[in-house]
Amino acid sequence: MRPFTYERARSPAEAAAAAQRPGARFIAGGTNLLDLMKLQIETPAHLIDVNGLGLDRIEAAPEGGLRIGALVRNTDLAADERVRRDYGVLSRALLAGATGQLRNKATTAGNLLQRTRCPYFYDTNTACNKRQPGSGCSAIGGSTRGLAVIGASEACIATHPSDMAVAMRALDAVVETVRPDGTERAIPVAAFHRLPGDTPHIETALEAGEFITAVTLPPPAGGRQFYRKVRDRASYAFALVSVAAVVQRDGTGRVALGGVAHKPWRVEAAEGELPRGAGPAMAAILEGARPTHENAFKVKLAERALAAVLAEAKG
């Protein structure tokens, strides 16, 4: 871990302003950032501790949804009665992720900003375009079982590790931010995470210093909600594939996938196939998938996980 200077921010605006310092990073739960700082994958020169900013409430949004403060802890978001009742997929996704200890620390905004678990990203002796742009991708041709099957590039085949973000993608959540100049904006989660392309080190739509203040959920989508996470061990593991689904009585619905791409993967245009079953739906959702020999199983797994969800929705 490189040395850094440290400050506690007292307001979002102050935080955003402080973020203009070179090498500044926000720290909230710290469960991902500190992990990476210990390995010098992240080397911030200045840490802005935003834990004192409040932003830890879940409020009814004027349009009928919920506005989740950026610093609401994963445990509290999962346990919120409104979330459990109206946004079950989100509660389920949170509870499927990490562990009680991590969920007690991890925040809503931080969860969205989690970085990949690609093992080559995590080993600084190997080339990684995400860690060191232009250095190459060691994962391609290497150990790829957990890596992306769709939307990857010649520069990067990493996946996004979040469960929560997958549910938020299915729920059409919107990320609210404030920029260093004080202006605010709203970014749909769909546009928040990026595909790797030639710049896998740029992972989100956030600008330098831009600070997440909240995530807003639209009014409840209704239907039956599922988060099916498939992993090797029964808990405390990242998804091989996960399926966030909202299924209506008539068989229509929405599906987002985790574990398959550089971002939560959802293809709205494919969702029309849902009433026809998991096979056609997943074929459309994962059309153009280019898996490796080691992770080709994810395509079939995604289909079967969706089939499990649809069977449960019917039952």
Partner: peptide, 13 residues
Amino acid sequence: MQEGKEFQLSRRG
């Protein structure tokens, strides 16, 4: 996915 691609390993600068 290509194997045997030339690439550089890097370690912090």
